[in-house]
């Protein structure tokens, strides 16, 4: 399925990009996360939450094609 992935804050630095469109044979957010962690090993040390089509979701959330997935780390500065 085709997914638009958006990376925020430090996650964009770990993946080296702010956005990418890719196809992946995954059915849930959790499976997609595993694929990304394999490709970008820095992610396994990072804290982030995941949103699908602008809603924060649980790892078991089923993915449909053409959705937008965002990886959102916490920020600290003030």
């Amino acid at each position: 399925m085709e997914l638009t992935l958006k990376y925020f804050g430090r996650i964009a630095e770990l993946t080296g990009k702010t956005e990418e469109i890719r196809s992946a044979a995954v059915e849930t957010v959790d499976e997609l996360d595993s694929v990304l962690r394999r490709e970008y090993p820095g992610l396994s040390m990072a804290t982030y939450t995941i949103a699908v089509d602008h809603e924060i979701v649980q790892p078991s959330f089923p993915l449909k094609t053409k959705v937008e997935v965002a990886l959102l780390p916490p920020f600290s500065g003030g």
Binding site: R10, M45, A46, T47, T49, I56, P73, P74, F75, S76, G77, G78
Partner: peptide
């Protein structure tokens, strides 16, 4: 509900370190 636990110490830097 957004971030259940704090990140590891030193994982996420602030403005004093990163600049803004």
């Amino acid at each position: 509900c957004l971030y259940p636990k704090p990140p590891a110490a030193g994982e996420v830097a602030g403005c004093n370190i990163l600049g803004v």
